[in-house]
Structures are given as C-alpha cells and as structure tokens.
Simulated assay, not measured.
Amino acid sequence: MTRDGPDTDAPDTDTSAKRHYRNWTVLAPLGLLATGLGASGVGQSTLLKGRGAPTWKWVAAGTASLVALNAGLCLFGDAIKHRALYEWAHEQEAEADDAGHAEGLQ
C-alpha cells in the first residue's frame, strides 16, 4: 500500500485500511456537496423572506436547507473519521509487515 491510497495490485482481500479509504473517498465529496448546497439554500431562504414571500415558502426552504447543511456536516465528519481510521490501520499494517520482515531476517 502507498500513502496516497490502497495498493490496487494486492489480492482482493478487503482490509480495514482499504474499507476506510473507500468510505473516505465517497463521503468527503458528498459531505462537501451537501454542505455547500445547504449553505446556498439558507441564503436563498433569507432572500425569500426579505422579498416578502409567503411564510410557508421561506420556512420550508430554510428547513430543507438546514437539513442539507447538517447532513453535509455529518457526512464530512464521518469522512474525517474514516480517513483517521485509514491512517491508523495503514500504520498498523505497516508495523506488522515490518515486524514480520525483521523476524524473517533473523
């Protein structure tokens, strides 16, 4: 495995590091996308209220925007967790490989 990502030449075993890396690569962009969408929607809801739109319109838009914003933050937070777990699992696997290699040299 390389520091930039899992080794694609390795057997198809789904190691912990590979699983966390894959989850990180999916969740991080989704989290950023949902956070941006939610933040933009909050601004749009504010404009609706300022322009005198009916209350139900800006309340519904604002609620949906806050749901998207909070979901994005949760997804991105989960992505950060998976990246940290990937780094930790990657270090553990490297230490195990080093120990096995050092033992084989003796």
Rank of each mutant, 00 (worst) to 15 (best):
T2K: 03
T2R: 10
T2W: 06
R3L: 10
D4C: 04
G5Q: 03
D7H: 06
T8P: 09
D9Y: 06
P11F: 15
D12N: 11
S16R: 13
A17D: 01
R19I: 04
H20S: 09
Y21S: 01
Y21N: 04
Y21E: 05
R22P: 03
T25I: 01
V26A: 12
L27A: 10
L30S: 12
L30T: 02
G31D: 03
L32M: 08
A34F: 09
A34W: 07
T35A: 15
G36E: 09
G36L: 02
G38E: 08
S40C: 10
G41Q: 14
Q44C: 01
L47V: 15
L47S: 10
L48D: 05
L48T: 00
K49M: 07
K49H: 07
G50L: 06
R51V: 13
R51G: 13
G52N: 06
A53F: 06
A53V: 01
A53I: 03
A53C: 07
A53Q: 08
P54K: 09
V59C: 03
A60Q: 06
A60E: 05
A61R: 08
S65Y: 06
L66E: 10
N70C: 12
C74N: 08
C74V: 13
L75N: 05
F76M: 04
G77A: 15
D78S: 15
A79P: 02
R83C: 03
A84Q: 06
L85M: 05
Y86N: 02
Y86V: 08
Y86I: 02
W88R: 11
E95F: 12
A96K: 05
A96C: 09
D98G: 13
G100L: 12
E103N: 14
G104A: 06
L105V: 06
L105G: 07
L105P: 00
